[in-house]
Design a protein around this nucleic acid. Structure first.
Lengths: 109, 109
DNA sequence: CCCATCTATTTAGTGTTGCTAGGTACCAGT
DNA sequence: ACTGGTACCTAGCAACACTAAATAGATGGG
């Protein structure tokens, strides 16, 4: 994809990851793979790990270290209460944006 | 609004302004006022002017200086062919994003 | 045994973008 | 002269995603 996606992802990627975690706990490698699967073909691995550390430091997720059979131990992240609240706020903000843009798009303004 | 909007606007605000200009030529002050009207209550004026200069340098818009009765001359921006192509690409990228997020939101994933 | 490969995470440095917080300038009304 | 509305510009900052590495454990092939 292009530079447009990269810029649009700013602020949105965080919501995406939180949304994923709201369904089930997951670790970084898993999330990256899932995103690639969903068509986010060139989200850098480093980006996800950095993002996870960020939301951890903000207290939106809890972390647990879990041994893996296939490699180094995994850091499994799960959404906590604060994260859930933040995610709700994210969806409200997102709805606001999509509504404005839909109006702009439809009336070819 | 909050920091969430600020981050989400990155990359999107540019599309919004181009979409506005696709309807009719406009100048910076006008665009800022319109955005505030639409609920983007705290988009800084400086942001819009900087953005306009950016898209001008990228060759997405044409500019014409028009005298105003009420103040300094206006710089009226209008979308050109290249800008129109870029805007279409923006809408495609935006659709991609909204589809993924809608899926995430609906299945409360 | 060594190397490639997959799993899994980390980090330093870069570019783009929106915000802060000013400033300049023109004009009308008081 | 002063205020307020119109109209634009700029320097410095913070946040975020990307680049491009490095580290490290496990497994299988040559």
């Amino acid at each position: 994809m292009g530079k447009q996606v990269t810029e649009m992802l700013k602020g949105v990627l965080e919501g995406i990851v939180l949304a994923i975690l709201s369904g089930r706990p997951a670790h970084g490698y898993e999330i990256t793979a899932w995103l690639r699967d969903q068509g986010f073909s060139d989200i850098a691995e480093g980006t996800i790990y950095a993002l996870l550390i960020r939301i951890e430091q903000r207290g939106l997720v809890d972390v647990e270290k879990v041994p893996s059979e296939k490699g180094p131990p995994r850091k499994v992240y799960s959404l906590n209460a604060q994260g859930r609240a933040y995610l709700e706020e994210f969806w409200r903000t997102w709805s606001f944006l999509t509504e404005r843009l839909e109006q702009l798009h439809e009336r070819g303004n």
